[in-house]
Write a protein that binds this DNA or RNA. Structure first.
Length: 834
DNA sequence: GGAAAAGTTAGT
DNA sequence: CTAACTTTTCCG
């Protein structure tokens, strides 16, 4: 007997899949020896936790543990051969968790594709005892169930329940009597896609022989064999059938004779498989592009963690700068992430990246199915790609040699996740790049004021002030809708815009119309008394869904039929108000008979691929007008668009949000940028009731700096970001009084803790440190799911780690949270004040 | 998040 | 005194 090497025991610290305060800490587990070589920090495991098995992530490995061995249990399962996360990402999850005050498990889960999220199953199996009780008198139901279990072996309880809807009560009894036993397991939602594949024989000779031996009548079978002779590669059965237009039986009979093989083979879904991308070469840079590209390339080559704010007007050619920066990054054998707002992750954008970098690019966006997204993600973890282009969560792409992160349309609020973890992709990107010594490029025509102020301190500011090939920015006209009304024009088109549309139609040029909706979508209102149908559980109006003719609450799912008479005044003049875009479309057709309009809004783009379809139609000039909401404002580039119209510019100006002016300016500037991007000059009409507002005026002059100056002045006076940091606390409870009361206590606590903690630490007085707690005040949506919502706003100015203090203050209410069903949510640097 | 344990209450 | 119910604890 050989001497065994000295037993090295190994322990893993695991974060389990329960997002609660109580479980927001590592638990130690024994690593079974056979796992020791494979397990690593970032591994996904199944661990026993109390009475069941949970999914968890390994965040630490050690040969020692504080936990006494009586408690220690072994990890039951290692879920992946290659850990889905690495040390860097686990550390980043820690940063996300403490920065945004969320349970660590949520930060970890945000980094993996949905397909790897845990799914728990009970496995039901007939036990030995079952045969002993064969004398039992079973009901018919029970007989069937027994027979099924006997023939199938262990069965997942969910499948069982589907087959025998009544089985749950029977199973409960059987479990108690020991007739069946159950085991728990963790699975993921992975569905490896398989397809029947035809495998030709290894030896070409075999095929030749087969052809000779075929009877003369089997002409179709001969076709198959000859095809395989010239293409001796495995081929999907479905593809082969359509290629040679034959039926499965033909191939099957060949397989039966043993001439070829049909097997289930795993296939990788490639959402872009049926598309070819024209390869492109780097374009020569304009002097201006060259001048911003040089420092970026320098940083990438030197591997220096620089953050660049690239301020370039619409049409100045930022994308080409991105592409060449990535090229430089790839040449250094390092990887690049490109973040794009979901809404502008258009086929056009994807095409440019696929065209330049081909199969070295993975694309991640929400339109992909769970499986497709998983497959794209796997290309990253298997190191098959070096570039990722995707929305917010792509910032967590599991690269190990990151050299560059690009954030396009840096100012977009969609980079902030509204659910926990409420992270901002821009901030995560900068943190991640710091660890990798990678460069960051924040690109925008209208940088967020936060970034602009940072650019004066830490970031490096790069500017591109003119469009490529010296094309002019479009001429922008402001139309005063008040004057239009005075002059008796009650239509939604002002006379100047009407004339401009007429002119383009005549010249066969194209038009983009933006309807900047306020609030959500369609609602039902009574025209006699103004009554709006609201959700009985939430203080919000119900949304009309045309296809099912019902009204639905977007917050709690409550639904009801559309009323035919007003519930309030019994009038029959109750009807739904179209998405806005619908009404604009109707009016357009009335004013310009025969006009071809493409309407893009939530209703028309919900279907997969519809987005692309509409844009292609427009691109091919099969429509005169592209009419839509925000989504027509971003990133589109059509050469024949020479007119952009904004129906009402000020709908978002009056929202209760300190960023409303900034958002208005950004949107107007972006949409104006859609016009005249190529040889034909563009023109823009902005209709507004507040023509003197600086966000409208500055947008019309394409004057970002003047806007920034004016808006920063307001922010400074009112003490809003970027002059302070905000943390929004939302307290909700079934009883209004409890919510307010807790809000008051919480506000007082935070202020008191701050005042107390400040005494010792106030010597470094460079800038005045300041913390104010405002509220509680009713939230903009004062009630959701029968819970009243109040919010407190913490404004902080200074350099200190304020999150810890807030975390401690909120923790004081833990008891009430559990006992009284109170909820407190924390949003660090909120983008929406709701 | 959920089961087990501990604590509380009501019913005889 | 205990069954029924609620609250608290703890999971490695």
């Amino acid at each position: 007997m050989t001497l065994l090497p000295k037993e090295h025991s190994l322990f893993a610290q695991v974060i389990v899949d329960i997002p609660a305060k109580e479980t927001n800490r590592p638990f130690d587990y024994r690593v079974p020896p056979e796992m020791a070589g494979l397990i690593d920090i970032g591994s996904r495991v199944g661990v026993p936790f109390g009475p069941r098995v949970l999914q968890g992530f390994v965040i630490g490995l050690s040969d020692r543990t504080e936990t006494d061995s009586a408690k220690l249990r072994p990890i039951s399962e290692l879920l992946d051969l290659v850990p889905p996360l690495n040390r860097e990402l686990v550390a980043l999850a820690g940063w996300v968790s403490s920065t945004y005050l969320c349970p660590l498990i949520l930060a970890l889960q945000a980094m993996i594709p949905g397909a790897l999220k845990a799914k728990y199953e009970r496995l039901i199996e007939l036990s030995e005892a079952a045969s002993l009780s064969a004398l039992h008198l079973w009901t018919e139901q029970e007989q069937l169930l027994l027979e099924f279990l006997r023939s199938r072996g262990p069965v997942e309880s969910s499948a069982l329940l589907q087959k025998f809807p009544e089985s749950s009560s029977i199973l409960k009894v059987w479990l108690n009597e020991g007739i069946v036993s159950e085991s728990l397991l963790v699975k993921d939602r992975l569905q490896i896609k398989k397809a029947l594949t035809v495998i030709p024989p290894e030896e070409p000779e075999a095929l030749r022989q087969a052809i000779e031996q075929l009877p003369r009548t089997a002409a179709r079978q001969k076709d198959v064999l000859e095809y395989l002779q010239s293409n001796p590669m495995p081929i999907r059965l479905a593809d082969l059938l359509s290629e040679l237009s034959l039926s499965a039986g033909t191939v099957k009979s060949l397989a039966d004779k043993g001439w070829l093989d049909i097997r289930e083979v795993e296939v990788q879904r490639d959402p872009y498989a049926d598309r070819s991308f024209t390869p492109t070469q780097p374009l020569p840079l304009t002097p201006e592009q060259e001048q911003v590209f040089a420092p970026i390339r320098e940083a990438v080559v030197q591997q220096s963690h620089d953050v660049f704010l690239l301020h370039g007007v619409t049409g100045s050619g930022k994308t080409e700068v991105y592409l060449q920066s990535i090229q430089a990054c790839l040449e250094k054998q390092r990887e690049a992430i490109v973040l794009v707002p979901e809404i502008s992750l258009t086929p056009q954008m994807v095409e440019r990246f696929k065209g330049r970098f081909g199969s070295r690019v993975a694309v991640l966006h929400s339109r992909l199915s769970q499986g497709e997204r998983y497959d794209e993600w796997r290309k990253i973890i298997n190191q098959q790609v070096q570039v990722v282009i995707g929305a917010r969560s792509a910032v967590f792409a599991p690269f190990t040699r990151l050299g560059l992160i690009i954030i396009d349309e840096e100012h977009e609020s969609s980079y902030k996740q509204e659910e926990s973890p409420k992270y901002h992709a821009r901030d995560v990107a900068i943190e991640r790049a710091r660890k990798h010594q990678a460069a960051v490029v924040l690109g925008s025509a209208t940088p967020s004021l936060e970034s602009m102020v940072e650019a004066r301190q830490g970031y490096r500011l790069l500017s591109m002030a003119s469009r490529v090939e010296g094309r002019p920015l479009p001429k922008v006209h402001i139309v005063d809708l008040r004057q239009e009304l005075k002059d008796g024009n009650r239509s939604m088109f002002s006379r100047p815009l009407y004339k401009a549309i007429e002119e383009r139609l005549h010249k066969k040029e194209q038009i983009v119309l933006l309807l900047n909706r306020r609030g959500h979508s369609t609602f039902v209102m009574c025209r006699s008394c103004g009554f709006v149908v609201q959700c009985p559980h939430c203080d919000i109006s119900l949304t009309y869904h045309q296809n099912v003719n019902t009204m639905r609450c977007h917050y709690c799912g409550y639904a009801e039929r559309v009323p035919t008479v007003c519930p309030s005044c019994a009038s029959e003049h109750i009807r739904y108000f179209g998405t806005g875009t619908q009404r604009v479309e109707e009016e357009l057709s009335k004013l310009f008979p025969g006009i071809r309009v493409i309407r893009m809004d939530v209703d028309t783009t919900s279907e997969k691929g519809s987005h692309e379809k509409w844009l292609n139609l427009f691109k091919n000039r099969q429509a005169d007008v592209l009419l839509g909401t925000q989504m027509v404002a971003k990133g589109l580039d059509f050469p024949h668009v020479t007119l952009v119209g904004v129906i009402t510019a000020d709908t978002m100006l009056n929202l209760p949000d300190f960023r409303s002016a900034e958002r208005t300016f950004q949107l107007l500037t972006q949409v104006a940028g859609r016009a005249g991007r190529h040889h034909l000059p563009g023109e823009v009409f902005i209709q507004t009731y507040t023509p003197e507002h600086y966000s409208v005026v500055c947008a019309s002059h394409h004057d970002y700096h003047e806007f920034a100056r004016a808006e920063l002045k307001v922010r400074r006076t009112l003490s809003y970001p970027p002059f302070c940091k905000l943390i929004l606390l939302t307290i909700s409870h079934e009883q209004l009084a409890v919510a307010i009361r807790t809000g008051e206590l919480l506000a007082k606590d935070i202020q008191a803790m701050w005042n107390h903690g400040r005494d010792g630490n106030n010597s470094s007085g460079e800038i005045e440190e300041r913390l104010d707690v405002h509220g509680p005040v009713a939230s903009p949506i004062p009630r959701i799911k029968d819970r009243y919502r109040f919010q407190c706003m913490v404004k902080y100015r200074g350099e200190r780690d304020i999150q810890t203090l807030i975390g401690q203050a909120v923790a004081k209410f833990d008891e009430k949270v559990r006992k009284e069903q109170l909820q407190i949510s924390v949003d660090v640097n909120p983008q929406l004040m709701m």
